[in-house]
């Protein structure tokens, strides 16, 4: 499974940098998070981070959390981080957030 996916991604990157799906959604102004399955990230100050449309957690520590999404990996760094809630489609991180990084 994993091999297939990586191959597909590679193919897409090689053939065309902007996919047809993306073109259509930007043309019709459709919400990207629905069509493209992008993650939706919202923050309250630097204390709460809310991520929808995630795939899973890769790493959890009080200083660092890595979350896998369709758009790559989101790395959150901070202090005394904890996962307030965790359901199938959303995750809520609480603590003092210092850095958010996208690893594509």
């Amino acid at each position: 499974m994993k091999n297939k996916k990586t191959k597909k991604q590679k193919k897409e990157e090689l053939v065309q940098p902007v996919s047809l799906k993306e073109k259509v959604t930007s043309m019709l102004e459709l919400p990207k998070e629905v069509v493209m399955d992008y993650p939706v990230i919202s923050m309250v100050g630097n204390e709460e981070l809310h991520i929808e449309n995630y795939k899973g957690i890769l790493e959890y520590d009080t200083e660092r959390i890595r979350i896998c999404t369709t758009h790559g990996i989101i790395k959150v760094e901070g202090r005394s981080l904890l996962l307030k809630t965790m359901t199938m489609e959303e995750i809520l991180i609480k603590g003092i957030i210092i850095k958010i990084e996208f690893l594509l």
Partner: peptide
């Protein structure tokens, strides 16, 4: 383990180290 649980629809909260 956490991923598997949430994919099964089990609600987890207050996860901390």
């Amino acid at each position: 383990f956490m991923n598997l649980a949430s994919h099964k629809g089990i609600y987890l909260w207050d996860i901390k180290k």
